[in-house]
Structures are given as structure tokens and as C-alpha cells.
Amino acid sequence: MTATIPLTTVDGGVIDRVLATLLDDLWGGLLDVLAGATGVEILASPFMQRAYLAAVCVALVGPLVGSFLVHREMAMIGDTLAHAAFAGVAAGLFVNAVFAVAVPPLATALVVAALAALVVQTLVDYAGAYRDTSLAIVLTGSFAVGSVLITAADGGIAVGINAYLFGSLATVSRANAGILLAMTTLVGLAVGAAYRPLVYVTFDEVGARAAGIDVTRYNRLLAVLTAVVVVGAMQIMGVILVAAMLVIPVAAASPVTGFRRSIAASVAAGLLATVAGVTLSYWYDVAAGGTIVITAIAVYATVSLGSRVRADLTARRNVDATATETLADGGGHGDRAE
């Protein structure tokens, strides 16, 4: 398992010290204070502190990248890359088991998912409208490779793979929390830097090309960022459910007007879902990924219902106002042109 691979193999104390500062002093300290103030004891356990850190990271990057995917009708690319990441995990575990080396499965997952992202993007570029077909081929193909690799190593790694399939708070070791934190920073910076071209390409791909923006480059960037998010979020969400964090919070934020604001709202919805989901998962000792997804869907349903009711009320009020105005002036008209 990844937990046994010390980060110190990468290099010296620097990473360890940074991790100690971020994880223990800053994040741990913050949650300790919170635990002291609220009396909620689980906030003080290092295990749950790491789980909450993972929850926050996933809620930040999932909707951030998902906002671009959903509005390009590419929501399912997340699912495809998650399955590619599964093949990567299987490859990592296979190499570890067969050759007795210590390759972190998350690293192989990242490499395989990023490659799959580029393959998918190339297929989409060449096949044009056949996006679904390209995605389905890569999705099932990589899952097939993963399943073959698992069984090829005599079932010994099948135990480890379950945690990746369904997600588990236990996989969030110190090292993995550090990796997730680094991935979150990377994705945040990349989206921040490329925000404008990504928005333009998402909104109007032809217009962006006419405006001289290198559309292919930003499509690839988005695909690779999706791969990074999927691999990062896979630890607690599980391969099968990870795509939900790219889609559901974005859907929940869809009543919000303004793209920037809708991204912020989707991150908020994501935070609500992951933090509540991790807590419930701990209390009732059930799968974290599933709990988070169910919570996210509940948030989405509540928001959708709320905005529908509000729209109805507004419409009724406008009708009333128009009627009153008409009675008062003996004419006039309500300006409700859309």
C-alpha cells in the first residue's frame, strides 16, 4: 500500500518539513482549535484531519475543473479518466508485486490517466462528433487492462484494489494527503492562469479559434487537469464515483448567474457535500465516496427545488404587480420581456 512508501525517498527533509508545517501546524492546529471550540472530538483526530483535508481539496478542484467540462457537455470524460486511473493503479500494484519495487500506485495512476486524457482528446479531435464512442472505448479498454493486471498477479493485489474502487478514508495517508495538497495547488494555479482561454473555448470554440486562441492546446490542458483531479479525488471517492464531484456540484450551482460566481457556488456546494459526507461516513462507518455522492445529490435536489419555487413565486408576483399596475393606471404594461 502507498502508506508504506515514505516521502523521504523523493528527497530530504524539505518536503517532510513543508508537509509538517502545512498538515500538522496549520491544518491540524486549525482543526484542533475548532474541536476545542465546538467540542466535536473527531476534528482533533489526525486521521479525520487528513480526511477533512482531502474532502476540502476534492471540493475545490472537482467543481473548478468540472465547471468547464459540464458546459462543454464533456462530463463523462471524468468517468473515462477515472477508469484509466484504475488501470494505472493496477499497473502500479502489479509492478510492485511482481518486481518488488516501490512505485506509488498514485504516481502510475496519474501517468496513465494523463496519457489517456491525451488519447481521448486526440480521438475527439479526429473523430469529431463521435465523442461518446471514443470515451466508451477508452473507458472500457482501460478497465479491461486493469482487471487483467489484477488477476495476472494471482489475486494478491485484489485486496488493495478495493480501496481504490470504492474509495476509503483510510487511503488518505500522510503522504497521500501531501500529494493531494500538491495536486490541488497545481490545478488551482493552472486554472487560474488559463482561466480566460478556458472560458472562451468553453463558451464558443469556433469564436475562440477565430480570435486566434490555440483551442487544441487548451482542450489538452483541460483533459490533463481532469486526469489530475480524478487521480487526486479517487482516494476518498473511489474510481467508480469520482466523476460525480466533477458534475453534481456544478449542476447544483447552475441557477447562479455569472460564470465566475457559478464556479464559486459549485465549490461551496462541493464543500458542503464532501465535509458532510466524510462526517456521516465516519459516524455510520459506511463508504466515504458513496456518502459524499448521496449528500451532493441531496444538495443538488434541494437547490433545484428551491430555485424552481422561487421562480414560480417571482412569476406570480410579477403577474400580480402587472395586474395592480393595470388597475391603477387603467393601462400600461409590465416590462417582463426576456
Binding site: 458546459h71 463558451f203 447552475s254 455569472g258
Partner: peptide, 12 residues
């Protein structure tokens, strides 16, 4: 082109 993306006129 606009689809369901929640961009405002000013953002466009």
C-alpha cells in the same frame, strides 16, 4: 453556442 453556461452578457 450559449448553451446552458451561466455566463452573463458582460462576461461574453
Amino acid at each position: 453556442a450559449a448553451g446552458g453556461m451561466p455566463v452573463t452578457v458582460e462576461e461574453v
